[in-house]
């Protein structure tokens, strides 16, 4: 059983590929199928990209920390950044209308929530933004 895995990365777009590979490998080891593991990595990466951009303002000195645990029937990712942002008001979870609908941005949370069984946002013990993403395991 995978427990207590922690990955801490700088807020730099160049780490994206490495994080994606990490998530896919964890997913496969945890029992996510080959067919679904891309969906898992897309969901987690949407959250990580938002943490880098909206939580840490793309500042490489600020880190995003990813905690991974496998429980019975579920794979859990906790993603902490250094910000205090609220996706519901800062990004919106529903697609926009009019000009917002044709924006080229702002769909990451929606996509991640649709792919994963569970995604919510709150605060960690330091008062910074924490995302919790649950992926079901069969």
């Amino acid at each position: 059983m995978l427990k207590g895995i922690v990955l801490k990365v700088p807020s730099d777009d160049t780490v994206a590929e490495a994080v994606q590979t990490f998530v896919e490998k964890i997913g496969l080891v945890a029992g996510v199928s080959e067919e679904d593991v891309t969906g898992l990595s897309i969901a987690v990466m949407e959250v990580v990209k938002n943490a880098i951009e909206h939580g840490n303002g793309g500042d490489p000195k600020k880190h995003v920390t990813i905690y991974v645990d496998v429980f019975s029937g579920r794979l859990q990712f906790i993603i902490d950044d250094c910000g205090k942002w609220v996706p519901d008001s800062d990004l919106g979870h529903e697609p926009g209308e009019g000009e917002a609908l044709i924006s080229s941005r702002g769909r990451g949370v929606l996509i991640a929530r649709n792919l994963a069984r569970w995604l919510d946002y709150g605060l960690n013990s330091e008062g910074n933004t924490r995302a919790t993403l649950i992926w079901p395991l069969s």
């Binding site: 941005r105 702002g106 769909r107 929606l110 996509i111």
Partner: peptide, 8 residues
């Protein structure tokens, strides 16, 4: 598969 960047 497509992510938010692809959609964008």
């Amino acid at each position: 598969w497509m992510d938010s960047s692809g959609l964008g």
